[in-house]
Design a protein around this nucleic acid. Structure first.
Lengths: 175, 175, 175, 175
DNA sequence: AATGAATGAGGTTTCATTCAT
DNA sequence: GATGAATGAAACCTCATTCAT
C-alpha cells in the first residue's frame, strides 16, 4: 500500500547487488554494473545513494552489521574458546565469500560501537575461559582479523589457509 | 652515451617513479603522473611498459627483488632468530614505506624462485636456531608477512602495530 | 473544498514557487527544486505544466500580467511623466527582484495585447504631457526596458545603475 | 617542425568552434558539440581548457580582445564622434553576430584593463569633440553597450533596432 | 627513441519525464 | 489528483593508449 515498500525493497536490492559486485570486482566497479546487477536504472542507485562513496559506505556498514550479528550469535555458544575460534574461521578462514565482511572492518575507521561491543563480549568470554591471552584488546583482535583475512586470501590452497590461521590463533593463546 | 644506455636509464627512472607514485596514490594513479615524476613523456612510459598492467607487474617484480635482497642481507646476521624477526618488522612493522614491498608478495603469484630461496634460507636458519617452530614453511611465512602488513596498515597507532606484530611472531615460536 | 479548488490552488503555488526559484537560480533550476519550494511532488508540477518549457512560459506569462498591472496602476497617477519614469525605475532600476518582470518581456515575443495596451496608455499619457518624445512607440519602450534592465544588472554599483538609467531616460525626452 | 604548431592550431580551432557554438546555442551548449564542430575529440577540448568554465572564460577573453581591437582601430578615425557611434553600432547595432562581443563584456567582471583603456580613448576623444556628454565614464559606456545589445537582440526588426539604438545614443549626447 | 597532443570509451552525476501506488 | 520512485539520456571529465612529429 505504501510506496515506501517498493522503495525499500529496491534499496535493499541495490545494496545486495553492490555487495556482490564489490566482492567480484572490488569497490572500483562501475555504478552501471551495480545497477545492471540490481535490475534497476543508474538513476535509482543514485537516488538511494547520492554518491559512489555513499554506496560503498553503505555496503561496508551493512557488512559490519553482519559481522556484529555473527559475533552476537556465537557469543551464545557455551564453549567461549570455540566460539572465538569459529568466529575467526568464519571471517578469515576457508570459507571464501565471508571475507568481504572483514574488508568492511578494514575500510571503516571502525569506531562502530555495536561491532566493538559484540566483539568485546566474544573476546571477554574467551579470555575468562582461558582460551585467549589476557593482554589483548578488541583493537588487536580487529587488526588480526584483517591480517588473517589477507593472509588467507593470498592463496587458494585451503590447507595452507588453515595452517596460517592456526599460527595466528596460536599467537593469541595464553603464554 | 650509447643509445641503449639512455634507454636503460629511462626505464629505471620510470620504474622508480612508478614505485613512488604507487606507494603514494595506489596503483590507480595515472600514467601521466608517473611520467611527470620520472621526468619523461607518457610515450616513453608506454614504450618501456606497453600496458599499465605491465608497468605494475614490473614494479612488483622489482619490489620482490628487493625483498629477496633484504632477506639475503639479513641471512648473514649471526643471530638467526633476530634476523628473522627483523625481517618481519622491516616489511610489516612500524616503518611505513617498506610495507610496499609486501604488497608485491601479495599481488604476485610468488612463484619467484629467488625470493622463495632467500626467504627459505632465512627461515631455515631461524628454525635451526630454535627461534621459529619447525612445522612452518616458506608459504606460511609469506602469508603471514602479508597478513601482518595488512594488520598493521589498518591502524596509525604505532604501539598497537607493535603489539599486533608480536602476537603473530609469538604464533611462529616453537610450541 | 471541491477538488477543482485544490487543483487551482496547487497550480498557483507551483507557479509562485517557480517564479521564486527562477529568480534565485535562473530557469535552469531543477523541477524538483520547484516542487520542493511549492510543497508538492514533482508529479504535481508536471500535471499542471506538462513540460519544463510550459512551466517557464507560464511563469513568464504571469510576470507579464504583473507588468501590465503595474503599468495600469501607474497610469492613474496624475503626473504622467513621473509615472512613466517610475515605471522604468521599478522594472529596470535599483530595486532587484522586480527585474524579473522585464525578463518576461525579453523572453516572450510579447504579442501579448494586454501588456502592449497598458504600456501604450502609460506611454501615450507621458507623450501628451510632453515628458517623452513623440517619435517612439511601445516597441521602442519595450526594447529599452529590456536594455535598461540588462545594463543595470551588469553592475552591483547602485549609483552607476542610476546614472545609466538616467542616460536612457534622457534619450527618451523630447529633443 | 615543432609539435606546438599543431597544438596551437587546434587550440585556436577549438576556441573558434566554441565561439560559434556559444553564439548559436548559448554557453550551456555541450562540450561534445564544441568538439564536433572543431573536428576534434572531447579529450582535446579538455586538454586545452581543463574545465567547461575555463573554455567559456577563454572564449569571452578572446571576444574582449576583439572588442579592444575594434575600439583601437576606430580611435584612429578623424571624426571622433562618428567613431564612437560606429563602435556602438558595430557591437550593438544591426549587425548580428558581433553582439557576441558584448556578451563578453557582460559576463566578465571587465576589470580587463586593455579593453577599458581602448574604450577610454575612444570615449575621451568623442567627449573632447563635443559628441558625447562629459559626465559619463567608461563604466556607463559599458553598461549602455550591454543594454543596447540586449535591447536590439530582442527584436528581429532591423529598423526598430536602429531607432532603439539612436535613443540611447541621444541620451549620451551633451545636454 | 622520445615526446606529448589526440583520441574516445567509460565513469560519475543530474534531471526532465513517466508511471505504479 | 497527488505522490515520489524509477528511468535513461546526456553532461562533464579522466585516462589508457596511439601516433605524428
Amino acid at each position: 500500500m505504501s510506496p515506501r515498500a517498493d522503495a525499500l525493497r529496491n534499496r535493499a536490492r541495490v545494496l545486495a547487488a553492490a555487495d556482490e559486485v564489490f566482492v567480484e570486482h572490488g569497490s572500483t566497479a562501475s555504478t552501471e554494473e551495480v545497477a545492471r546487477r540490481a535490475g534497476v536504472g543508474v538513476g535509482t542507485v543514485f537516488r538511494h545513494f547520492p554518491t559512489k562513496e555513499a554506496l560503498r559506505d553503505a555496503v561496508y556498514a551493512e557488512r559490519l552489521r553482519r559481522v556484529g550479528e555473527e559475533a552476537s550469535r556465537l557469543a551464545d555458544n557455551t564453549d567461549a574458546g570455540a566460539a572465538f575460534h569459529e568466529f575467526f574461521e568464519l571471517l578469515a578462514g576457508t570459507s571464501g565469500p565471508n571475507q568481504a565482511l572483514t574488508e568492511a572492518l578494514a575500510a571503516s575507521a571502525t569506531d562502530d560501537q555495536d561491532v566493538r561491543g559484540s566483539l568485546g563480549v566474544l573476546l571477554d568470554r574467551a579470555q575468562r575461559a582461558g582460551a585467549v591471552r589476557s593482554d589483548v584488546g578488541v583493537d588487536e583482535v580487529i587488526a588480526l582479523l584483517i591480517g588473517a583475512t589477507q593472509a588467507t586470501t593470498w592463496t587458494a590452497d585451503v590447507s595452507l589457509r588453515g595452517r596460517t590461521l592456526n599460527i595466528i590463533l596460536d599467537g593469541l593463546r595464553p603464554h
